[in-house]
């Protein structure tokens, strides 16, 4: 009797092409992703329905939370130049190494007199240091000078006007926000962005 040989089909498919595509996409996403760094002053931004994205550069962020204001500028060279201008104004000296470190730092919230201690810390310790916020009262308005000098530095280096974003905590009382807006308006900065979270469509 002739045995009929069943042609057994192999169940395994060739995964090579799929693997290629998957890793190509993975590489793409890893390269385009920006690492999320823990903020020195964690704030819970209120939600809104607007979809405008913040610009990637030429941006200064003022983080307002718990009555404190933290300051951050995008771009390493703009940061270094801002620090140089501030150092001239307040007569606080920073070494080249300090400037280099400051260029890589995230947002900070200390008076310029104690900025050097923050620069010397490890990145992990900076967030735990309990920074008191940048002075913003009328006697010692360092925040206004930081904004002003960052704008000057940005125009010098990037030849573009610096955009200002206010990142406020949802529970922050209005007078604190108003104080920051007033400081901006004193410099004739009348247009700025409010950083908000994304509100889901179902909440409409």
């Amino acid at each position: 009797m002739a045995k009929i040989k069943m042609n057994k089909k192999s169940t395994s498919t060739d995964m090579t092409a799929m693997c290629d595509v998957a890793f190509l996409l993975l590489t793409f996403f890893i390269l385009t992703a920006t690492a999320k760094v823990p903020a020195a002053l964690p704030v819970d931004t209120p939600a809104s329905t607007v979809q405008t994205k913040l610009p990637e550069k030429d941006l200064a962020t003022l983080t307002v939370g718990a009555g404190k204001v933290f300051f951050d500028v995008k771009g390493k060279f703009v940061r270094v130049r801002t620090l140089e201008l501030m150092s001239d104004k307040y007569g606080v000296k920073f070494s080249d190494e300090d400037k280099e470190k400051f260029g890589k730092m995230e947002s900070f919230g200390v008076p310029i007199q104690s900025l050097k201690q923050i620069i010397d810390m490890n990145p992990a310790d900076r967030n735990k240091a309990g920074q008191p916020g940048i002075p913003k009262d009328s006697l010692d308005n360092q925040l206004a000078d930081w904004i002003q000098n960052a704008r000057i530095a940005n125009i010098e280096l990037q030849e573009a006007e610096l955009q200002i974003a206010i990142k406020g905590d949802a529970k922050e009382e209005y007078p604190a926000i108003r104080r920051v807006m007033d400081i901006l308006q004193d410099q004739k900065v009348n247009t700025f962005s409010l950083v908000t979270g994304l509100r889901g469509k179902e909440e409409f």
Partner: peptide
Amino acid sequence: PQSMSLGLPDK
């Protein structure tokens, strides 16, 4: 982050 832009009148 999302942002809404706000324009205030000249002070």
